[in-house]
Amino acid sequence: MKHRQLPDEEGRLSALGRYQILDTASETAFDKITGLVRDILDVPICAVSLVDGERQWFKSIQGLDATETSRSVAFCAHTILKRTPMVDAELDPRFASNPLVTGNPRIRSYAGVPLQSPDGYNLGSLCVIDVQPRNFSEGQISILDKFAELIINELELRTLAHRDSLIDAVTRRSFIEAVEKAISRLEQDSWPCALILFDLDHFKKINGGYGHPAGDEVLIAIANCCRTTIRPADILGRLGGEEFGVLLNETSFKDAVLVAERLRNQFSRLAFDWAPHLKITASFGVSEIAPGQSLDHWIGVTDAALFKAKHGGRNRTIGSSKLVSCAVAA
């Protein structure tokens, strides 16, 4: 297995975010792998650890009752930089004072291999831990490598099931899951978060007049416009045939309206050789989540704003926080 780790942290976090795996429920496929590895290598603890910006989060862990730790104490944060197993953590100056060594679970031996994405980013590690000093052989490290490949394959398969293959956006189901996570984060850290819903105006006429391949080309162009405008941490979803959603993390209502307007203006400048006079327009609804709002309420408020934009003449943005709207028309 080749390890060509890419050094930029922003790109690594973006790659991790694309899998939409953080803070998801346990899954049998990953639990089976950690269970097998623990049995094969005869260790008390095995984990699939994903290294986020400030924490490591366990997609699966056997032998330890934990869901995450601070990145600052994570052994796996070192694994994504260097593949060297630690033989005795108490004697290693990097870890001798680590609270996971001096306190529970009192780690003495650790071995981990990176979970490397196909584009070369180390997302986290598959690791084994023992509370006794021990050496991990090359053969055992090779076993970890093979299971790490299975984990990446599982992540890739999971992504295929959660992404629209035509435009490479998340599916409606995955988008709703991302919105639910944003609501949960708001309860913890109070960062603003905004939602954009938009429909392409008269899209059925494009399919009917130019054919479905032409319609597909328009959808791909729209998705590309979105990707060049939003940030890596934001999420683009295809919610229906010509209906899209954009989840803007750490974004105020005012800034979200500006993003929607930027997208609307960019769509209108798209040009296609097969229809030189075709103008693509879209109608937008925008809202910012407020504390205490439910998923259904947030989406309902945004959808109501989109409804007003469509029935108010189309090709416009209507922003709404409590259905008190501000409209920006073409």
Score class of each variant (00 low, 15 high):
residue 176 I to R: 10
residue 196 I to S: 00
residue 160 L to T: 07
residue 149 E to Y: 05
residue 223 A to T: 03
residue 224 N to S: 12
residue 210 Y to S: 03
residue 168 D to W: 01
residue 153 N to G: 14
residue 195 L to G: 04
residue 153 N to V: 03
residue 173 R to S: 13
residue 205 K to I: 02
residue 190 S to N: 12
residue 177 E to A: 14
residue 180 E to C: 05
residue 201 D to G: 06
residue 217 E to I: 01
residue 198 F to R: 00
residue 223 A to G: 05
residue 174 S to A: 15
residue 202 H to N: 14
residue 210 Y to P: 00
residue 171 T to Y: 06
residue 208 G to I: 04
residue 199 D to V: 03
residue 210 Y to G: 04
residue 215 G to H: 02
residue 160 L to C: 05
residue 208 G to C: 03
residue 219 L to Q: 06
residue 154 E to T: 15
residue 199 D to H: 04
residue 190 S to P: 00
residue 168 D to M: 04
residue 207 N to V: 05
residue 172 R to W: 00
residue 156 E to T: 08
residue 158 R to M: 09
residue 164 D to L: 09
residue 186 L to H: 11
residue 199 D to T: 09
residue 153 N to T: 12
residue 224 N to M: 06
residue 183 I to H: 09
residue 179 V to K: 01
residue 222 I to R: 01
residue 172 R to F: 00
residue 198 F to W: 07
residue 165 S to W: 06
residue 209 G to Q: 11
residue 152 I to A: 05
residue 214 A to T: 04
residue 227 R to N: 13
residue 198 F to N: 01
residue 226 C to L: 09
residue 207 N to W: 10
residue 154 E to C: 07
residue 158 R to L: 10
residue 168 D to F: 01
residue 217 E to K: 14
residue 148 A to V: 05
residue 188 Q to E: 12
residue 157 L to V: 12
residue 159 T to W: 08
residue 203 F to I: 04
residue 188 Q to D: 08
residue 175 F to M: 15
residue 176 I to S: 11
residue 189 D to T: 10
residue 200 L to K: 06
residue 216 D to W: 13
residue 181 K to E: 14
residue 206 I to Y: 11
residue 221 A to Q: 13
residue 216 D to Y: 10
residue 213 P to S: 07
residue 207 N to R: 07
residue 180 E to D: 10
residue 148 A to S: 15
residue 208 G to S: 12
residue 152 I to S: 06
residue 215 G to E: 04
residue 216 D to T: 08
residue 219 L to A: 05
residue 178 A to K: 05
residue 197 L to S: 04
residue 156 E to L: 09
residue 209 G to M: 08
residue 211 G to Y: 12
residue 179 V to N: 01
residue 151 I to S: 00
residue 204 K to S: 11
residue 204 K to F: 02
residue 202 H to L: 08
residue 195 L to D: 02
residue 225 C to D: 03
residue 154 E to A: 15
residue 204 K to M: 07
residue 206 I to M: 03
residue 222 I to H: 00
residue 209 G to W: 06
residue 211 G to C: 06
residue 204 K to P: 02
residue 171 T to Q: 02
residue 224 N to F: 02
residue 191 W to P: 00
residue 184 S to E: 14
residue 191 W to R: 14
residue 192 P to G: 08
residue 200 L to R: 00
residue 156 E to S: 04
residue 173 R to Y: 10
residue 151 I to N: 01
residue 166 L to D: 09
residue 204 K to C: 04
residue 162 H to L: 14
residue 223 A to P: 09
residue 202 H to K: 12
residue 177 E to W: 03
residue 226 C to G: 14
residue 210 Y to Q: 11
residue 151 I to W: 03
residue 201 D to C: 11
residue 166 L to V: 07
residue 174 S to K: 12
residue 159 T to A: 11
residue 209 G to N: 14
residue 218 V to L: 07
residue 154 E to R: 12
residue 150 L to R: 09
residue 170 V to R: 00
residue 150 L to Y: 12
residue 194 A to H: 03
residue 219 L to T: 06
residue 217 E to G: 06
residue 153 N to M: 10
residue 173 R to E: 11
residue 180 E to I: 03
residue 160 L to H: 13
residue 206 I to P: 00
residue 162 H to G: 02
residue 170 V to L: 07
residue 186 L to M: 15
residue 195 L to H: 06
residue 202 H to I: 01
residue 214 A to P: 01
residue 224 N to H: 13
